[in-house]
Design a protein around this nucleic acid. Sequence first.
DNA 1: GCCGTTTTCGGCCCGACTGTTTTCAGTCG
Length: 571
Amino acid sequence: MSNADVARLLERIADVLEIRGENAFKVRAYRKAASVIESLPEELEKIRERGELETLPGIGAGIAKKLDEYLATGHLRYYDEISSGLPEGLIDLLSVPELGPKTVALLHEKLGVKGIDDLERAVNEQRLQELPGFGPKKEENIRRGIALFRAGRERMLLGDALPLAESVIERVKSGAKVARISYAGSLRRMRETIGDIDVLAASANPEAVMEAFCTMPEAESVIERGHTRASIRHAAGAQVDLRVLSPESYGAALQYFTGSKQHNIHLRSLAVSAGLKVSEYGVFRGEKLIAGRTEEDVYEALGLPWIPPEIREDSGEIEAAREGRLPKLLELKDIKGDMHLHTVDSDGADTALEMSAAAGRMGYSYICISDHSESSRIARGLEPKRRRQQIRRLRKLDPPGAAILVGAEVDILPDGSLDYDDSILEQLDFVIASVHSAFKQSREEVTRRLVRAASHPLVHCIGHPSARLINHREPVDFDLDELIAVCLAHDTALEVNAHPQRLDLNDVGCRAAAAAGVALVLSTDAHSTTQLSLMRFGVAVARRGWVERGAVLNALPLARLRKRLARKRKG
DNA sequence: GCCGTTTTCGGCCCGACTGTTTTCAGTCG
């Protein structure tokens, strides 16, 4: 039973309660508990074994008891009770844009709607208009909502959303005068996938900004347009929302629209208990605006230091801020080299010298060339003979750019053994061991496999540990806590693969590993010089995982990095 | 259902926009 499974159940309970018209605060309590569990750095089961469920924020006696039952039996009677009589398909309807719990309940009660097909039929027969508060427009909006739901628009990758947002910002800036402009929302928090893109602007002339936004060439349609808010559908397939505010509210709005929702709720309850009110317009004491121009002002008014957007998930950051123990998060400039790069020798597009030169231009002092091993045939992995030749060739280079470490990305075979024998591994400065096959193995098999690789005395790092491809391939199933313990015991690092489709370890994994004291290596897995710039996404994930510079091997200068790598070899 | 240097009971974040409304409910973020 994974934490994600438990979080899903709690979300589902919240959905059911909402449709049933239960107390909104009770619903919120379940959602809060779900989000806490989802971002836990440890398996819930282990916390339960220690009898510490109720120490988790947002989890009291009631939910703890239910978690107990669910973890022990895989079943929850309470859920069966509340959901009896509610068709499964009804809950899915909550994901249809325009439909909320009230509407879903009404559709079920009055029209006997049980799922998306029933709903579509009712819309086609214009039966929604019979309902109180419904007219032709609402019916038409719901029709569009159904189409969107059916299209199943998957969330964008961070790596696609960020450049898209940056291009929108450029469009707005070139079309109207803005004092300040930024993206906000989950994008600013650098979540691995993004639903809608939020952009925020401060301007003395909001109408001009709205006009520039809604008429940009990439705006396929305008979904809504008010005085301070507008939404468009962007040609790249995303919905982009814009809000325009006055400069004295910009910081408060940026704070507010960056979220997360849970972070904001927590923050606002702090404000309420201090006799203050926080909205997107500022922090108020009574009618008086006391802060709002910058985010720093807003947090300061609440007695807090500024909190980096990446950790605003209400997963302990507010408490840490109050107690003055916020982490000093890793920054892109801390990274001194890129440890996982491919070249023309396997499936890359550029040579080692070209990679070194590009890395040098970025200010890196070293890179590690780590082409694939023999078993990765599609990637033209190097068989032992070609590998030996490559090692000799790379050793002779004296690059003018970043120094070149000689490494390899070695396949972890299904039984946990490695794709090269020790005689080759011994010659390498840095050995990354990665899973590229047999993704369907059981949890026990994968765990054993990764543990065996991480225990190998010649392996420095486990590459993209879960082997997932976001939106395309599920992560392999394994016990992360066990892998972390083994890595710690054997001085093996875990990779934070910065490729936007991987981001692996993910944020939760980073937090668990770093908290345990396991070293991390941030790498782009670049297959060309242009992909070296993907490092910022790895840094984003590490920051979301509360990672500080000291936890990262490739934040070390070259000489100290070499010492660390040698330490492992000496055992 | 959770939570407490004002509270173990009575609170629980706040506002824009839309569509349907003569004053507001629902959805969204």
